[in-house]
């Protein structure tokens, strides 16, 4: 055995080891990040199981406005999940023999709450208010996607802070007229950039001094 422990061929081995070590670490982090952003973790576009397979698509296309059930969206931070009575307004007659709707009738008989699976749940360290958005030109579809085309509801957006900031940095890209808030098919880009900037002014949205991206606006 020679006294020379490392021969030139070990140079390659050393470089390869370094590469694997650095690349492996970076790759692992990258993989974790990918998993973190994936629909597997964020539930983006994943239909959620519900006690009753409620279809927004069916109900909206029949001409029922969002606010028929989500009654407090204009006034409150919370848009409201309707009480069983709202279901029974129609389903005391419509499909009243349907097995699918038995949990609704059971809830109506017993007064026990239906336990829906929550689709959009922001972290508790974020303050979000529905009313300030729908009263200032942000339509339901901007965040919730085409709910009118969802048989079972899914989360359209991953709800990352980056995504919130896209709009808070430049609301003029997303605002729409007052009478189009609940119009699911409306596209804010139908108006020109100038018209939308005028809308931002009309709503009184103040983007000066980074006001809209101030941490305390959402983390209060």
């Amino acid at each position: 055995m020679s006294s020379q422990l490392f021969t030139p061929k070990h140079n390659t081995l050393a470089r390869l080891t370094l590469l694997l070590f650095v690349g492996g670490a970076a790759g692992t982090l990258g993989l974790l990040d990918l998993i973190h952003r994936s629909p597997y973790v964020r539930y983006t576009k994943v239909r959620r199981e519900q006690p009753v397979p409620f279809s927004h698509k069916h109900h909206v296309n029949m001409g029922i406005d969002c606010r028929y059930c989500h009654t407090s969206v204009e006034k409150s931070s919370f848009a409201n999940i309707p009480p069983t009575q709202t279901c029974m307004n129609c389903h005391n007659i419509m499909w009243k023999e349907s097995d699918m709707l038995e949990p609704v009738r059971e809830s109506w008989r017993t007064g026990k709450s239906l336990e829906w699976t929550r689709v959009h749940d922001l972290p508790d360290f974020v303050y979000f208010n529905h009313s300030i958005h729908v009263n200032n030109g942000i339509g339901c579809a901007t965040c919730h996607g085409r709910v009118d085309q969802m048989p079972l509801t899914w989360r359209e957006e991953p709800l990352f802070m980056k995504w919130c900031l896209e709009c808070h940095r430049d609301p003029a890209e997303f605002v729409r007229p007052d009478d189009k808030i609940y119009d699911m098919a409306y596209d804010p880009q139908e108006l020109s950039r100038e018209e939308r900037e005028a809308l931002v002014d009309a709503y009184g949205i103040d983007t000066s001094n980074h006001r809209m991206t101030n941490c305390s606006i959402c983390h209060r």
Binding site: S77, F78, N80, I81, E115, P123, D124, F125
Partner: peptide
């Protein structure tokens, strides 16, 4: 623990 703090959001279980 930060994501789901010991406070109740509306209608939380």
């Amino acid at each position: 623990a930060m994501y789901d703090q010991p406070k109740f959001e509306p209608l939380e279980k």
